[in-house]
């Protein structure tokens, strides 16, 4: 068999394999992508909450992406208490100013960072939240002060679209 024939034959096979592989990849991708969040789930990726009826000292809980979000309108006392804390001594040092840009409003995921239970508000030794599952105490900024939880309760992405409405996510 001449060299030219061998080269042409190999070219045909190589091209077929390569093109075949592309096709298989293109066919497999939808089978994998279908497990990604679907359009109806992604539509609920962000939610708008009307907070006009929340009084100072009051807290509401909304469901966002399947998890509870605490929206607390803090009293001046609670804000001061949060800002006074010396963060050097915290297990997870975070300034309250960084957690609540608008100090009156604390928006955070109501999920204990230990093993995922929902902490109870207005409880615990630091005036914030207490998780009954394993005894974690959070302060008025939602920071872990005592107990097994490793980090502060998470602050999601949010913004005030107007004075009465917070868009989370």
């Amino acid at each position: 068999m001449s060299d030219k024939k061998v080269k042409r034959r190999d070219f045909i096979f190589t091209t077929s394999y390569a093109l075949g592989a592309v096709g298989v990849g293109a066919a497999v991708w939808p089978l994998i992508d279908q497990m990604n969040p679907d359009a109806s789930v992604k539509a609920l990726a962000s939610t708008e909450v009307d907070v006009s009826s929340v009084e100072p000292g009051q807290s509401i809980t909304v469901l966002w992406r399947g998890k509870p979000v605490f929206i607390k309108r803090r009293t001046q006392e609670e804000i001061d208490k949060a800002r006074e804390v010396d963060i050097k001594n915290l297990k997870h040092p975070e300034k309250d100013e960084d957690r609540a840009k608008n100090p009156e409003w604390l928006v955070m995921l109501g999920v204990c960072t230990h093993l995922g239970c929902v902490p109870l508000g207005d409880k615990g030794e630091y005036g914030g939240w207490f998780c009954p599952c394993h005894g974690s105490h959070y302060d008025t900024s939602g920071r872990i002060r005592k107990g097994p939880a490793p980090t502060n309760m998470e602050i999601p992405k949010y913004e005030f679209v107007n004075t009465n409405t917070i868009k989370i996510g």
Binding site: P30, D33, Q34, M35, N36, D38, A39, S40, V41
Partner: peptide, 24 residues
């Protein structure tokens, strides 16, 4: 993975697949 085998939800779960599931 997406279909619901219940008389009240089967038809709408198929529509969910057709409309919402990626490449459904």
């Amino acid at each position: 993975m997406h279909y619901v085998a219940h008389a009240d939800l089967a038809f709408s779960s198929v529509e969910h697949i057709m409309r919402n599931v990626n490449y459904g």
